[in-house]
Every structure is written in C-alpha cells, then in structure tokens.
C-alpha cells in the first residue's frame, strides 16, 4: 500500500514577513496510521498542514504522497486524496445549504448529479447528519457544523484525512460524538490538537513540534506521559493522566 504513504522531506517554510515557521521537518506516515501533531501556539502545526495540502509552497524540501511529488501538476490529483478539515467550520462551509456544500467537491470533479447525490448522502450518513442536509450552515450547532465540514471532505473520498483542531469549541457531548465518528474511519489521519486527551484516545503515534521542528516522534503512550518533554513543548500531561483533583488519587 505504498501509494498511501504521506511523506515530508526536510520541509522549510518562511512567511513573507520573515517568520521562519517550519525549520526542516521530515516524517513518514503509513497507510491507516493515526498521527497526532501537538505543540504550543505558534509551533508551526497549521503551517505544516498547509504545506501538506499544497496551500503553501515550501521554500525548501518536498511533500510526497504515495510516491507522487506534490507540485503544480500533481496538485489537484493529490488534493483528491487528501481531505483537510479546517479549524473553523465557517470557513469551510461556504455554500448556503449543507447539501450544496458537501456537493461542491464532487460537482467540481464534474461527476453527474446522480453520483453527486449518492456521494453527498453517503458522506452525510457517515457523520450522522443526513437529516440536516437542507439546513443553512448558520442554523447548525458547533458540533453539527464540524460534522458537516467533515462531510464536505468525505464526499471527495480521500484516503488521508487531515484535521486541524477538530474538537475545538465543541461541548463535551459533541466532542465525544465527533471522536466516535473519527474512530470509525479507516483513513490515514493526521490530527493537530491541543486536546491531548483526544489525541491519547485516537492516535497511536504523536509528533511534538516546537519552533518549526519535530522534537519528538513516537508512540503516543510514551510521549504524552513524558512530563518533561511535554512541558518543554509548552504543553502539559493529558488531564486523564494527571492526578485526580477530587479524590487526590495520584497516577
């Protein structure tokens, strides 16, 4: 399954204002892996995702998706394989109904309307919001918006899902529902988040980023329990691994 390997080779990126956001990042993610990308604010997580998606072009290094190098010619082909869910669903849901939004991708691929409909329905079913398909995005709750944003990506039938802070601004129940949905996907997943408990639950592998560099890459269990490493990266231990404030039980 080599064609599903996501690879970053020595990526560098500098913003026009001179800020060096990514300073030589390399990694290889295999098919079906679920990888958490964590790090403090401004560590370079979002920039990294944009480099993977080809929204930004690296000043040095390259992105390879399944042996295909990301460049202008392969961009549209690669973007069909990678689906990115934005941090703010309002940026991603730009049409006036959920259906049209989820259909935007398939329609851009010039599928016929019957196929489009089938893809939309299947995507909405996967995230459990088929009943919302005629709603306007502004009538949705935060959790529903997130689900709809994921559906817009699923309708493109990607192999790899990239999620930027998927659980931010969700209430606990919506967060749980979302996590269950994500758990059910067999896609390769790359998730950035500050929600370390979610990472702990969903990802086998974690990459810790600081100042545009990967300072640690390994098993989630090893990394998220390493207090010193976590604090160095501007993070702390997941709540579920911290001492219990109510009963005083230590872990």
């Amino acid at each position: 399954m080599s064609h599903h390997i996501t690879e970053a080779k020595d990526l560098f990126y500098e913003y026009p204002d001179g800020h060096q956001a990514v300073n030589g990042i390399s990694f290889r993610i295999h098919h079906g892996e679920s990888v958490g990308v964590i790090g403090g604010n401004g560590a370079g997580k979002s920039t990294l995702l944009m480099l993977l998606m080809g929204i930004l072009v690296p000043s040095q290094g390259e992105v390879v998706i399944g042996e295909v190098k990301l460049n202008k010619d392969t961009l549209s082909m690669i973007r069909q394989r990678l689906g990115m869910v934005f941090q703010n669903p309002d940026d991603q849901l730009f049409m006036t109904t959920v259906f049209d939004d989820v259909a935007f991708g398939p329609r851009s691929l010039k599928l016929d309307e019957a196929q489009v409909e089938q893809r939309v329905n299947s995507a909405l079913e996967q995230v459990g919001i088929k009943h919302l398909k005629d709603r306007a995005p502004f009538k949705l709750s935060a959790g529903e918006k997130r689900a709809a944003a994921i559906a817009t990506v699923l309708s493109m039938t990607p192999d790899i899902l990239i999620l930027d802070e998927p659980t931010s601004s969700l209430d606990p129940r919506s967060r749980r529902r979302l996590m269950n949905i994500l758990k059910g996907f067999e896609h390769t997943k790359i998730i950035t988040s500050h929600d370390l408990d979610m990472v702990l639950e969903l990802c086998q592998r974690v990459m810790v980023i600081k100042d545009g560099l990967i300072i640690s890459d390994g098993q989630t269990k090893d990394i998220l329990t390493n207090k010193k490493l976590m604090e160095e990266a501007g993070l702390e231990l997941p709540l579920s691994l911290q001492n219990c404030p109510a009963c005083g039980k230590t872990k």
Binding site: Q80, G83, F86, Q92, G105, T152
Partner: peptide, 13 residues
C-alpha cells in the same frame, strides 16, 4: 483567504 483555500481543496478552479 481561508475560504478560497477551502474552495481550492475541493477542486475550485
């Protein structure tokens, strides 16, 4: 800009 990115990622040309 983000909306434009979102559109491009879904094949807007």
């Amino acid at each position: 800009q983000r909306v434009y990115d979102a559109m491009c990622l879904r094949g807007f040309i």
